[in-house]
Design a protein around this nucleic acid. Structure first.
Lengths: 252, 252
DNA sequence: AATTATAATATGCCTAGACATATCGGGGAA
DNA sequence: TTCCCCGATATGTCTAGGCATATTATAATT
């Protein structure tokens, strides 16, 4: 297929084409699949065969097929070969962003206002939410994310002071606790729960909305290896905010 | 570092260890980062250096470093080298599953009940939701996802009949429209919006909940290449359902 | 001092060949 | 027939070496 030998015995791709070879192959194979020419269950040619067809080394084919497998477009099994997957399950991923970054990206003036701040030993509720033994020292924060000086989201946060002792004296002036934590602690695991609730009187007052307005809630737990770092619940008035995510086929 | 030569001149890893070498290297480097031994901004040794240290080929190191880069733990730039990234942004991904698969996984009896079904030419609202010109033939469906014979979620769906003409005569008995579509059409792109709303009278009746209950909504648009396939809005009573997602560091 | 060429360096991509491993099929033994 | 072993096959991983390209540091020039 390819017809441009170069110097040496292994032509190292003097391509005028801007994209690497494995990607061109990835695109070509992907096209066969999404066009329907290769339906679900169709078996692709073997790596050595494709290598002959495309005139490249087997490893290059392997890289392209590996990418297709990463995208779940094909399934690969030794001896059985590579087959087109069933249409992908109705399952996708939603990115959950840092509120501050999100607002800044939208060109809005962002601020965080701390409402309450308490250092205490974890009570039963704290212990359950944060997943630490009762009595563990925690920092409990409530604050407001402001967009152009208007309430945008309400945040209720617990920080495990055993994991982050520096937080005990931090005042969170001009920086949100989320940002502050991220500049210090890399998390290795996170759990999210998304739900809905009707605003109670306190939430309504703080967010400047009517009582019983339907709100979106996001709870997030983060770990660093085995240690719990923080638990946070963010409450968004539904009419001001929607989580949006778009998933196009990633061109690698 | 490695001390077991094999036959030939290129020992092809007769490892007793179950994991491939590039993964062991990935783990070793990752440990340095998440432990804090290599803080953000730290520059890693170059590929040739690491290859000497670990006693393997440069390509194997490249695979391990590439994996770290995929996980956003490091940043790689030519000539500049590989550096430890800033702690990852507060951003994550949430998996949105097929309702049916989700319920089955939870060991619950699942059923779909069709409530209304209309074939029509797209009115203004249809056209806006589905993103097709007004007048395009569409199939409008409303149905209920049942868990153990109790209402679990309400689904409002539009299907573009130009993209999926077979849907015109399909009755969706015993199979949900989502499932049915997925068995036919692979989608290549999807957009999700998550929001909250208060149940109106109709929703409340269909879902057997009280009016004004806060509900979670998920809207999803899917494309196949450039063509719109379907638009769906699913409404979950908040007290019956939460979206949960957990993200641990993926061991490759 | 500011700008521009140049060399060095680290990653990115590729090749050809090799051994490793899972698994599918078929043939032979119980 | 049923079970087990064994060869064939396709992918998984690895090596050693090479050219390509972006970027940075340095030297030369204006």
């Amino acid at each position: 297929m390819r017809t441009e030998p170069v110097n040496g015995d292994t032509p190292a791709l003097p391509r005028a084409s801007a994209q690497p070879r494995y990607r061109a192959i990835y695109e070509a194979l992907r096209q066969k699949i999404v066009s329907g020419e290769w339906p679900a269950g169709h078996r692709l040619p073997s790596e050595p065969e494709l290598a002959r067809t495309f005139g490249c080394a087997r490893m290059t084919i392997g890289k392209a097929l590996g990418a297709l497998a990463d995208q779940r477009l094909v399934t690969r099994r030794r001896r059985a070969g590579t087959t087109v997957s069933r249409p992908r399950p109705q399952e996708s991923v939603l990115e959950i962003h840092d509120i501050e970054a999100e607002l800044l990206a939208a060109g809005v003036r962002y601020a965080y206002r701390s409402l309450t701040r308490r250092v205490r030993r974890a009570n039963a509720a704290d212990a359950a939410a944060l997943g630490v033994p009762p009595g563990t020292p925690v920092l409990a924060l409530v604050g407001l994310h402001l967009a152009d000086a208007r309430p945008h989201a309400l945040e209720e946060r617990l920080i495990n002071l055993e994991a982050v002792p520096e937080a005990r004296t931090e005042r969170f002036i001009g920086i949100s606790p989320g940002r502050w934590l991220l500049q210090r602690i890399p998390w290795t695991e996170a759990e999210h729960q998304i739900g809905a609730l009707s605003a109670d009187a306190t939430m309504a007052r703080r967010l400047a909305i009517r009582r019983n307005t339907a709100c979106l809630t996001i709870e997030r737990n983060t770990w660093r290896e085995e240690q719990r770092i923080t638990h946070v619940r963010v409450i968004y008035p539904y009419d001001q905010h929607r989580l949006v995510a778009r998933f196009r086929y990633r061109p690698l």
